[in-house]
């Protein structure tokens, strides 16, 4: 940067320095208390999927019927979900958390998270679950097995993989916005 010559420049410099300082402090402070754990991130993602997916109208009983988010397996994620889900309203619909312990229960969900803990049941669940369910998994071959969205670890971050064929089959339209931050993977059409 050029040495400050004009008062305007000096002001800009001060502002920039201040900003840098502020950003540094803020980041440090923020990261100290809110460095997101994997379950936290995944919980946030799961809720956010509700915003980027369009279910057919017959997936809901009424116009203001809640979106049902079901979790199969992992307790940590459902714990985090429990913390943040209260009061979330997406597109005029409440979002409610349920445990999905059976295929039937899973089929009643709009979003179904199958954790790694249920890895061995995954193919079965994916094969058998009917209806308009956005299935989200976290195992390496989730999409190949017929899942719609897979959460994968990539560069210290959680990345998204989407199987559009599976989404089509469930008659769920995935927003292009979500696709822009996701990797498309061809998988089993379930």
């Amino acid at each position: 940067m050029n040495p400050p010559k004009r008062p305007g420049r000096r002001a800009v410099c001060l502002l920039v320095l201040f900003s840098v300082w502020w950003v540094a402090v803020a980041t440090v402070g923020f990261s100290a208390e809110t460095v997101s754990s994997e379950p936290q991130v995944k919980a946030a993602f799961l809720i956010n999927f509700a915003k980027y997916a369009d279910w057919p109208s017959n997936a809901f009983e009424k116009a203001n019927s809640p979106i049902v988010l079901g979790v199969m397996g992992d307790n940590k994620v459902s714990e985090e979900l429990q913390k943040v889900i209260a009061g979330r309203v997406i597109n005029g619909r409440e979002i409610v958390l349920k445990r999905a312990n059976s295929i039937d229960e899973a089929g009643a969900c709009h979003i179904l998270f199958i954790s790694n803990a249920e890895q061995q049941h995954t193919p079965t669940v994916l094969d058998q679950v009917k209806g308009h369910v956005l299935t989200v998994g976290e195992s390496p071959e989730f999409l190949e097995k017929g899942g719609v969205i897979n959460l994968v670890r990539k560069d210290q971050k959680i990345a998204l993989e989407v199987n559009l064929t599976a989404a089509d089959k469930a008659q769920i339209k995935i927003s292009s916005k979500l696709l822009s931050v996701a990797t498309l993977v061809k998988g089993k059409a379930n």
Binding site: S36, V41, A44, N48, K51, Y52, K157, A159, S180, V181
Partner: peptide, 15 residues
Amino acid sequence: GDNTSAALDFNNSNE
């Protein structure tokens, strides 16, 4: 904002 909403939601600052 519209184009970055997904990136925000899914924590993809690169995007």
